[in-house]
Amino acid sequence: MIPAPFAYARPTTVDEALQAIADGGEDVKVLAGGQSLIPVMRLRLAAPETVVDLGKVEGLRGVRDDGDAIVIGAMTTHSDVLADPLIAEHAPLIAEATGTVADRQVRHRGTFGGALVHADPAGDLPAVALALDAEFVIVGPGGRRTVPASEFFLDYLTTAVGEGELLVEVRVPKLAGSWGMHYEKFNRVAQAWSIVAVAAVVRRENGRITEARVGLTNMGPTPLRARQVEEALAGAEATAEAVAAASERAADGTEPSSDLNAQADYRQHLARVLTRRAVSTAAGL
């Protein structure tokens, strides 16, 4: 299909990008990898006045070591994430989840930051960022600010990135101690979006789970932390029974949608089963 007419800006620096957004008129869309934006524009579900393409902006790509955290540039592509040694060392959960995103073609174009800012509830990376307590670095006309993951995802397709702002990088804290991670994705075919998925990050010491963080994909309009599961797991024995009991609470308080792939009650059931599987794997059970 053919998108409606739009103006196009291709800045080369973050400052130029912010200016282009400011100058772009009423409805500006920022193009990162374009794997979601271009389809909705072609379907004419979105008809922005201006598209600001970040493809030529230097400095937004790549991963660097920043002491107690690794920092992932917003324009780092999924395939670059998959090949990155720092991510493999400090946040393998990101690589694992990224490997399940769509197909190879999409992963070559799609970006880490774009997927997070798009905040599709069925997207895989938001729940992962939530489980890793990532921090989002946002710049705008008012300067630079950092938002924790827990305050980043506000509503359906809506994040803390405000009008005229840009996400530039994501800080992922390095974890100290003995941590295990797993992303358990449930979908019907390999390239499809998650029906439900669970990101689990578990610290295990002396046969006990000392800390667990569980992120849920597609269990509501935003990614969620399964706080009740986390509380039940904290200090629990690292046994299949304890994990199963805690996982029974994975869907508590959730209000997932009903669609072609799953009605709400089935999604809630899946959340419990997948949480058990994700935590068990992360805990090495």
Binding site: I21, V30, G34, L45, H118, Y156, L157, T159, V161
Partner: peptide, 20 residues
């Protein structure tokens, strides 16, 4: 429909910033 790819644009909040 199963996800944001196919939502009616009227359902989607307008975000002028961010990246897609």
């Amino acid at each position: 429909r199963s996800n944001a790819q196919a939502v009616d644009s009227s359902d989607a909040p307008s975000t002028s910033g961010g990246a897609l």
